[in-house]
């Protein structure tokens, strides 16, 4: 697969330590806007840890230490000139369990734009909320009850609300950490459809447990094992013709 544009984010020789324990070993990877990138691998392989280094969420863990270089549009995100607040606005994140704030649906979406000052007037904010909810595929379901609490929605709706919340600040990259693992199959299908629609506008990285899901939603797949990146390539290649035995064993269900 050709890459006409330079990668949106790229990681070079990244090592992550929790205290003495090394969680990620020498990972290098590129992520671009045209493709959805899936991280797969058995649980505990470090795929979620690595995802969290991409928007410096590991900073919230006191013992975590990151080595190596990760760039966003060529700028090192771990350099002292990089502002975490800005970085996280540009690299949004959706979590495993839907975590809407205990506020109204409207306020959930408006949270990011408000703190970053993206809307100067109420009307602007209304536009942002509507467009974000539309893009999250939730507008028609909730347009009449924007004042209801975000926690009153169903699990799938909550997760789409969280995606909408992330979209509302116009990020450049969206990281999704097993976004469907807490959802039923119908809700999962909706989220996957949504990911399809968001592709091209945002660079999307999705961590998943579910290999079928990786095959369905992603164009590129990275296989992690024991903290190392074993194989990275186009999804079709990884699933049909893996180069490494470990990858083959994993996707054929030998372990996982």
């Amino acid at each position: 697969m050709s890459q006409p544009t330079p990668p949106k984010m790229s990681a070079r020789n990244v090592n992550v330590y929790y205290g003495e324990k090394q969680a990620i070993q020498n990972v290098s990877i590129d992520v671009d806007t045209d493709n959805v990138t899936a991280f797969i691998g058995p649980s505990g392989c470090g795929k979620s840890t690595f995802l969290r280094t991409l928007n410096r969420m590991n900073d919230t863990v006191a013992s975590a230490r990151v080595e190596g270089e990760i760039t966003l549009d060529g700028e090192n995100i771990y350099s002292s000139g990089m502002d975490v607040v800005q970085l996280r606005a540009r690299v949004g994140m959706v979590f495993q369990k839907p975590n809407p704030f205990p506020k109204s649906i409207y306020d959930n979406i408006a949270y990011g734009p408000r703190i970053h000052g993206l809307a100067s007037a109420k009307a602007d904010l209304d536009v942002i909320v509507e467009s974000s909810l539309r893009r999250a595929g939730l507008w028609d379901e909730v347009k009449d009850r924007l004042k209801d609490s975000g926690t009153a929605l169903s699990g799938g709706q909550q997760q789409r609300l969280c995606i909408g919340r992330a979209i509302a600040v116009e990020p450049e990259v969206i990281l999704m950490d097993e976004p469907c693992s807490a959802l039923d199959p119908i809700a999962t299908a909706k989220i996957e459809e949504l990911i399809h629609e968001l592709r091209g506008r945002y660079a999307i990285v999705i961590v998943t447990h579910n290999m079928q899901q990786a095959a369905r939603v992603s164009q590129r797949t990275a296989f992690f094992h024991l903290g190392t990146l074993v194989e990275y390539g186009s999804t079709s290649e990884i699933f049909t013709n893996p180069r490494e035995d470990r990858t083959k064993d994993y996707i054929t269900g030998r372990y996982g």
Binding site: M57, V85, R88, K97, N99
Partner: peptide, 11 residues
């Protein structure tokens, strides 16, 4: 997860 959610928004 609430706290993470907010921090991940850039708050």
């Amino acid at each position: 997860s609430m706290r993470d959610g907010s921090l991940a928004m850039g708050a």
